[in-house]
Design a protein around this nucleic acid. Structure first.
Lengths: 371, 371
DNA sequence: CCAGTTAATCAACAGCGTGTACTTACGGCA
DNA sequence: TGCCGTAAGTACACGCTGTTGATTAACTGG
C-alpha cells in the first residue's frame, strides 16, 4: 500500500479537549493570574466551556484559585494561577566539559540543581550513570514522584531530535550514533526527550521569561556558536534538527580559513577576535550576524546566552545592541530588543526541562498565521 | 479588562470538521489520486469518518471518484481526485514595471492570463482600475462566478500582510501607506489577500509542484533579492511580514557600500557582478548566501525564480548548485536539492492565487513538530 | 434592603469521530 | 456458474465535545 505523505493529524473529540485544556493552561501561564472571563475572551470559547475545562484543571491540581479582582458593580472575577508544585521536570545539560542537572517546577523555575564534573569526555555509559545518580538525587525534592513529567536532555549537536540519536559530535567520536534518548529513557523510566542545547535554551527562555514573544532567536556563544529559533511559540528544528547552525554563517568572503573548510565563518572570526583579546569585537561580529538573522526571520527579540556572553554579560549585550542599532535602518526594524538569558549559567539545563514541560501548554495543534 | 495575550484558538466541533475536511482535501491534492483507505491511514481517522468527510467533499464537488485500483483479492479501492474546476482563484502580481493577472483552478494551474503594461509606476487608483478590468476579463473563463474563492495580490515589500497595507516601497512614494487589500476587496467583492511577492511565489511552488517538501526556501532574484520561506507547510512571514529580507544579508564585512548604508550586502555584491557582465558570479554569490540559509533553517530544498534567474535558468541553477555543493560538507547537508520555479515568469502571479487557495487545504490548525 | 450588574454555573442540545455490525465488490476455485 | 474468502466501504447507536438558553452567586450603589 502506497504510504500517504502526510503524517497523522486527524482531529477527534479527545484531541479537542486536550487542545483546549492546554490552551487554557498556556493562557494561565502567560498571564500569571487570569480570570475565567478573560480565558473565554482569550480562547474564543464560551464561558460554560471554560468552566468545564477549568474544573478539570482544578481537579488535576494544575491550577488554583487565587483571590478575586476588585468588583466593578458585579460579581468579582475569580483569579486562577498555575500551581507550581503540580508537576516537575528534570533538565539535563550534557556539555563537553561538565553536566548540569536541574529540577524545575511547572513554571520552569529551578528548585534543585546539581553540577557534575563528568561531561561528554566520559564514555556515554559512565556519563549516563552519573546523570542517573544526579537525577535520582534531585527527585528527593519532589513530594510525590508521580508528579515528574519527564526528563529533557540538551547537548551539543548535531543530533536527531525525533530519534534522540547523536551524530558526529565534534571531537567526541565515542558519542557518534549513541541512542541517547532510548538509553536514558530506559534508565529513568519516564518520558525522555533529547534536543540541541541551543534549541533547549530557546524554549526555556520562552517558558520561563514572562513576556517572551512568539518569535525570537536565542544566540548561544560558548565553545561554538549556535542559535535556537522559536517561531510561532514553538522550537523550529528543521527536518533533521540541524536548524540554528549559526557559527558557520559566512560573513566575510575573503575571511580567514575556518576548520570547516570555508572562509570567513562567523565562528572563525569570533575565535580570532577572542584570541586577540578583543571580546568586544567578537560580540560585534555576533551582532552583525544577528542583523542578518533579524532580516531573514523578522525577529523583534533576541536572547543572548552561553559562557562567552556570561563572561561579561553587560558589555556583550551592549556591543550586540549597538551593532544592531547601527546596521538596521530606523523605521520598522528598530523595535528589536535584545536581552540576556534569564537563567544565566543554568539556562540550557532549565531549557532541557522546558522540553518536557512545553507539551503541557501546547498539544501540537496550533493556530495559523494565515489570513 | 486586561486583554489576554493570545489570540483566539479554542477548538469546537465545527472547527474539527473543517480541519479534517481540509486535511483530507490536502492529502488528495498531494497524492493526485488516493483511496479512502489511504486517507484513513494518512489522517489517523477511522474509515467511517473518512466516508462522511469524503461524502461532504463529493457533495461540494471538490473531489470526484476516478477509477479504482487493481483488486488484490477483495473489493478494489475507489480512487479520489481533486476536481480542478470546482474552485478558481485570481492571482495578481503587481510589480514595479508591469502587472500579471492569472486565473488558476483548484490545483493552482493557470487557466487564463493577462499582462498589463501598468505597474506600480502608475498611481494606485489607476493601477487598481487596470487590474480590475483584467480580473473581470479572466473571470469570463469560469463557468460559474460563485466558484471564485478570492483574489490574491503579490507585490514588492515591505508591506503588512495582516492589514494589507503597503509601506515605503522603494522609489514609489505614491504607494506608501496605501491600503491595497481594503481597496482591492472593495472593488472585487470577494476575499482579497495581499502578500510579498517572494512569499506568494514560495506558497505557489508549495501548492503547484507535486513533491514539494514542508520546509523550503524560495529565492527570488529580480530587481532586488528576496526570499520566501515555507516552514511546516506554511509561509513564515514573521510578525511584521518582513521575513525573507535576503538582499541585505551582509556577506562581506569589507565589501562595497550598499545604498542601504551598510557594507557587503548580497544585493550590492550581486549588482556589481551583473554590471561587470558576470551573472555566473552573481549566481555563485546567491549560492553562498543560500548556504547560510540552509544552515540556519535546515532546508533540504530551494527553489529559484525571478527575472535574473530566468535570463539563463540552467546556468543560474548550475552555479548555485555547485556553490552549495562546494561549501556544505558531505554528510547530512548533501541532501539539498535546488530547482527552478515551475511556473517560470508567472510564478509570482500563480503564487498570489495560491494565497487564496491555501486555506482550503489548511484551516489554520496544524500538527506540531514536537516530540 | 433591594435593584442593577457581572461572574459563574446548570441543563438540554447539536454534531463530531468511534465502535460494532453489515453490505458491497472483487479474485479464486470448483 | 456458483460459492467462498478477502478487503473496501457504509449504517447506526453511542460517548463526549462545546454551545445555547435559563439560573444562581456575589458584589456595588442608592
Amino acid at each position: 500500500m502506497p504510504v500517504p505523505v502526510r503524517r497523522l493529524a486527524g482531529a477527534n473529540l479527545p484531541l479537542v479537549r486536550d487542545h483546549n485544556s492546554a490552551l487554557v493552561l498556556d493562557l494561565v501561564r502567560r498571564n500569571g493570574a487570569i480570570s475565567r472571563v478573560e480565558l473565554a475572551a482569550g480562547t474564543g470559547l464560551s464561558a460554560q466551556a471554560i468552566t468545564k475545562i477549568v474544573n478539570r484543571l482544578l481537579a488535576d491540581g494544575l491550577v488554583t484559585e487565587a483571590g478575586r479582582t476588585g468588583a466593578t458593580g458585579g460579581k468579582p472575577r475569580t483569579l486562577l494561577r498555575l500551581e507550581p508544585t503540580a508537576r516537575y521536570a528534570v533538565g539535563v545539560h550534557l556539555d563537553r566539559a561538565d553536566t548540569t542537572v536541574v529540577l524545575t517546577d511547572l513554571t520552569a523555575h529551578p528548585v534543585a540543581r546539581r553540577r557534575l564534573p563528568q561531561g561528554m569526555a566520559a564514555t556515554p555509559e559512565d556519563a549516563l550513570t552519573a546523570i542517573a545518580d544526579a537525577v535520582h538525587s534531585v527527585l528527593a525534592e519532589i513530594p510525590d514522584t508521580r508528579r515528574l513529567v519527564g526528563v529533557g536532555i540538551a547537548c551539543p549537536g548535531p543530533l536527531d531530535h525525533t530519534t534522540g540519536i547523536l551524530h558526529r559530535v565534534t571531537g567526541l567520536p565515542a558519542w557518534d550514533g549513541f541512542p541517547l534518548r532510548a538509553r536514558a529513557a530506559g534508565r529513568f523510566g519516564v518520558p525522555t526527550v533529547v534536543d540541541k542545547d541551543s534549541n533547549a535554551a530557546a524554549l526555556g527562555e520562552s517558558l520561563s521569561a514572562a513576556g517572551t514573544p512568539d518569535d525570537f532567536g536565542y544566540l548561544y556563544h560558548g565553545q561554538g556558536l549556535g542559535a535556537g529559533f522559536v517561531l510561532g511559540g514553538r522550537v523550529y528544528r528543521g527536518r533533521r534538527t540541524n536548524a540554528g547552525e549559526f557559527g558557520h554563517q559566512i560573513m566575510d568572503l575573503d575571511g580567514p580559513r575556518c576548520p570547516c573548510g570555508n572562509r570567513g565563518c562567523l565562528e572563525a572570526l569570533c575565535r580570532a577576535a577572542l584570541e586577540a583579546g578583543d571580546p568586544a569585537r567578537a560580540a560585534r561580529l555576533v551582532g552583525t550576524a544577528a542583523v542578518n538573522l533579524v532580516r531573514l526571520l523578522d525577529f523583534e527579540h533576541l536572547v543572548l546566552g552561553g559562557p562567552v556572553v556570561l563572561a561579561d554579560p553587560e558589555r556583550y549585550l551592549r556591543e550586540v545592541t549597538t551593532t544592531i542599532g547601527a546596521l538596521l535602518p530606523e523605521p520598522t526594524w528598530q523595535r528589536v530588543t535584545v536581552t540576556l538569558t534569564g537563567a544565566r549559567a543554568d539556562a540550557t539545563a532549565v531549557g532541557a526541562a522546558a522540553l518536557i514541560l512545553a507539551p503541557l501548554f501546547d498539544t501540537g495543534v496550533a493556530p495559523a498565521a494565515s489570513c
